[in-house]
Amino acid sequence: MKILVTDPEGYVGSLVVACFTQQGHEVISVSQANAGAALSLIQLAVTDLQNFDAVIHTGEICGTQALHPQIAGNLHYRDAMHLANLAKAAGVSRFIYLSSCSVYGAGEEEYVTEESPVRPQTPSATCKAAIESDLLTIASAEFSPTILRPAIAFGASPRIRFDVVLNNMAGLAWTANKINIPGKGLSWCPVVHVLDICQIINCILQAPRPLVHQQIFNVGDTNHNYQLIEIAAMVAEVFQVENFSFGHHGFGDRGLFMTFDKIHQFFPDFQCGWNPRQGAEQLLNFFTLTDSIQSHFTLTRSPYHRSENHLFHTVSIA
């Protein structure tokens, strides 16, 4: 397959590029930040997308949302729909958009499915919900958008994020020998490893197009809904940390509980290969290896090694 992937410098996008390249696909990446790729997304023309089999739009650049959320949302919406309309005009038959469980908001229902109403509560989630809606609107017999709503991602990546729950806990356990638990720790939090997200993208690309045409899928495993205190306990056991603190980060006691029956009905062979404890073990190995490499090539330790880093204090469950 010839595949266009956006945001190769991102947490998920960098892994998507690596995974599909290793599988032997021809992968071309485009950047939203005009860095890390040969092309910038907004500079694309219809002719650039001709002869592609699929486009994988891995989402928006998260850091820009915090600075100017409304402007960033408008630009991300513009970029996504620009790309989708170009792909449709160029005859690209498959378009996968990596949205987020954040479109459900705080999860007022006992659990959320793909049929649950979306209640985005942040500019980023509002942007994603708008992109989802308009992508499905432009579907046609020749153009098949598929929407993915992953649970909260975790795990190592070439461009790792630390503003997601498990990674944040692991990062602070490594640097400061403690774990901050948002709220009272009772909120429900669905999680999925980034490699499992890559796995389901591959399943969708290999599936008959009518099966995934105009479909929305929650991505994860119903058994991988955990209360925050449970995730913290797994991370603490792996990192051998006993120092816990609780915070007030706007978390209610409910959080979000997702079900994933649909994706397992459509793809019976798909199974999430990673649980949170395995993810924590992977991150411990990742940090240890990174530290070892750094020590080998430099005489001075990183200023972030075993010291508190403000990057680990902003936690998001979306």
Score class of each variant (00 low, 15 high):
residue 305 H to K: 05
residue 301 R to D: 15
residue 171 G to C: 05
residue 98 L to H: 02
residue 108 E to I: 12
residue 169 M to L: 04
residue 202 N to G: 14
residue 82 H to M: 10
residue 194 V to R: 07
residue 6 T to I: 03
residue 307 S to Q: 12
residue 99 S to G: 14
residue 175 T to L: 07
residue 152 I to A: 04
residue 191 V to A: 08
residue 189 C to H: 11
residue 170 A to W: 00
residue 102 S to R: 04
residue 238 V to K: 11
residue 164 V to M: 15
residue 240 Q to M: 13
residue 217 F to H: 01
residue 63 G to L: 12
residue 256 L to E: 01
residue 26 E to R: 13
residue 177 N to C: 07
residue 267 F to V: 07
residue 95 F to C: 03
residue 148 L to P: 13
residue 166 L to W: 04
residue 166 L to K: 02
residue 280 A to R: 03
residue 154 F to Y: 14
residue 258 M to S: 02
residue 162 F to E: 05
residue 135 L to Y: 03
residue 262 K to F: 08
residue 112 V to G: 08
residue 51 N to Y: 10
residue 15 L to S: 02
residue 219 V to Q: 05
residue 309 N to I: 01
residue 158 P to K: 08
residue 138 I to F: 03
residue 82 H to Q: 15
residue 51 N to I: 10
residue 207 A to K: 13
residue 161 R to Q: 09
residue 229 I to Q: 10
residue 81 M to K: 00
residue 43 Q to M: 04
residue 244 F to G: 03
residue 246 F to Y: 01
residue 30 V to F: 06
residue 298 T to R: 13
residue 136 L to T: 06
residue 239 F to A: 06
residue 133 S to F: 08
residue 202 N to L: 06
residue 29 S to I: 15
residue 295 S to A: 13
residue 242 E to V: 10
residue 18 A to N: 00
residue 58 T to R: 11
residue 150 P to M: 09
residue 240 Q to L: 02
residue 175 T to E: 04
residue 134 D to E: 09
residue 46 V to R: 04
residue 226 Y to F: 12
residue 116 S to A: 15
residue 188 W to L: 06
residue 284 L to T: 07
residue 65 Q to D: 12
residue 16 V to P: 08
residue 162 F to Y: 00
residue 127 C to Y: 09
residue 62 C to H: 11
residue 135 L to Q: 12
residue 212 V to L: 05
residue 233 A to S: 09
residue 83 L to V: 02
residue 91 G to Q: 08
residue 287 F to A: 08
residue 2 K to S: 06
residue 153 A to H: 03
residue 71 I to N: 05
residue 94 R to L: 06
residue 131 I to M: 07
residue 22 Q to P: 09
residue 21 T to C: 11
residue 143 F to L: 06
residue 126 T to V: 03
residue 106 A to V: 11
residue 74 N to D: 03
residue 264 H to G: 04
residue 234 M to D: 01
residue 312 F to N: 05
residue 308 E to Y: 08
residue 155 G to W: 07
residue 298 T to Q: 13
residue 139 A to Q: 15
residue 136 L to E: 00
residue 242 E to W: 02
residue 313 H to A: 02
residue 157 S to K: 13
residue 284 L to F: 08
residue 248 H to Q: 07
residue 16 V to G: 08
residue 168 N to Y: 11
residue 22 Q to R: 15
residue 61 I to F: 04
residue 101 C to R: 06
residue 275 N to T: 05
residue 100 S to L: 01
residue 92 V to K: 01
residue 278 Q to G: 06
residue 209 R to L: 13
residue 180 N to R: 15
residue 223 N to V: 12
residue 298 T to W: 15
residue 193 H to T: 03
residue 210 P to K: 14
residue 96 I to N: 08
residue 30 V to Y: 00
residue 81 M to V: 00
residue 269 D to A: 14
residue 52 F to S: 09
residue 300 T to Q: 06
residue 114 E to V: 11
residue 57 H to C: 14
residue 148 L to S: 01
residue 144 S to V: 00
residue 38 A to E: 13
residue 59 G to S: 07
residue 175 T to Y: 03
residue 162 F to R: 00
residue 258 M to I: 13
residue 91 G to H: 14
residue 140 S to A: 02
residue 275 N to Q: 09
residue 69 P to L: 04
residue 215 Q to Y: 03
residue 308 E to P: 00
residue 29 S to W: 14
residue 161 R to E: 06
